[in-house]
Computed example of a mutant assay.
Amino acid sequence: MRGRQTVRDMVLSLAVIGVLVAAIYIFIPHDDSGTAEKNAVQTVDTRVEIATARRAAPYPVAAPEGLPKTWRATSVSYRATEDGKGGAWHLGLLDPEEQYAAVEQSDAPAEKFIQDVTLGATRAKGEQAVGSKKWDRYKGEKYNALVREEPGVTTVVTGTAPYGRLAELAAALVAKKG
C-alpha cells in the first residue's frame, strides 16, 4: 500500500507542475513570429548624440548621411577623456542583411585603438577604394575593417559585414565639427 501512495503522489505532483508551466506559458507574453528576431535589436535615434559628439570631440566626427533606411543604428556613444586626448566616437549599425557594422573614431594612438575596436584584426594586403580615398583593409577572426589614419584622428569602419558593405558605410560618412 505504501508503494502505491508514493507513485500516486508523484503523478499528482507532476500534474500540478504541468498546470503551472502551462499557465506561465499562456500568461507570459512571448512572440514566436518571424519578426521577433529582427525586432530583438532595438533601433536608436542618433541625431542628438551625433550633434553632441561633434561639439565635444577635438576632431571632425564622421557619421553616415544618405544610407538607405534598411541600415539601422543600434548603438551610439561618445566618450571624452579628461585630458582631451583619446576621446572615442562609436556608432553601431545593422546592415540590410542584419550584419553588424560600426564607425569608430579616436584621437588616441592609432595602433592600440585599431586593435581594440577590430578585436585584434591584422592588416591585410591591399586597399579599399572608397570614393577618391584609399582605406587600409584589416582582417580578423571576428571582424573585418577598413581603416583610415589622418592627422589627429583614426577612423575605423568595422564589423561582421563584408568589405563591400563596410565600404558602402565608409562612402556615406561625412566628417563635421560642431
Score class of each variant (00 low, 15 high):
I50A: 03
D9L: 06
G178T: 01
V117Y: 01
P64G: 05
A15M: 09
S77M: 14
V103D: 09
T70V: 13
N39I: 05
D107I: 00
W135Q: 02
A88Q: 15
V41P: 02
R47I: 13
R8A: 08
A145R: 02
V153N: 04
T6R: 15
A57H: 07
Q5A: 12
P162V: 01
G92P: 10
T122W: 05
F113G: 01
E141M: 06
S75K: 13
Y163H: 11
Y78N: 02
D116V: 14
E127P: 04
L146Q: 09
F113V: 03
A88G: 10
V157W: 00
A175E: 07
A57M: 06
R47S: 14
E150I: 01
E150T: 09
K125V: 08
V19S: 14
R137C: 03
A88R: 15
G140P: 04
A15F: 11
A36D: 15
L93R: 03
T160N: 06
A171H: 01
T43S: 06
A80Q: 12
T118P: 02
A80E: 11
P151Y: 15
T74E: 09
R148V: 11
P29A: 02
K177E: 02
V19G: 14
K177L: 04
Y143L: 00
R4W: 15
A73G: 08
K134A: 13
E127A: 08
I114G: 03
E127V: 05
L146Y: 05
V11G: 04
A172K: 01
W135H: 07
T35S: 10
E65C: 07
L94F: 03
V16T: 13
G152V: 06
K133W: 10
I26G: 10
V11M: 07
I26R: 15
R2Y: 05
I24W: 15
T35A: 13
Q105H: 06
D136R: 04
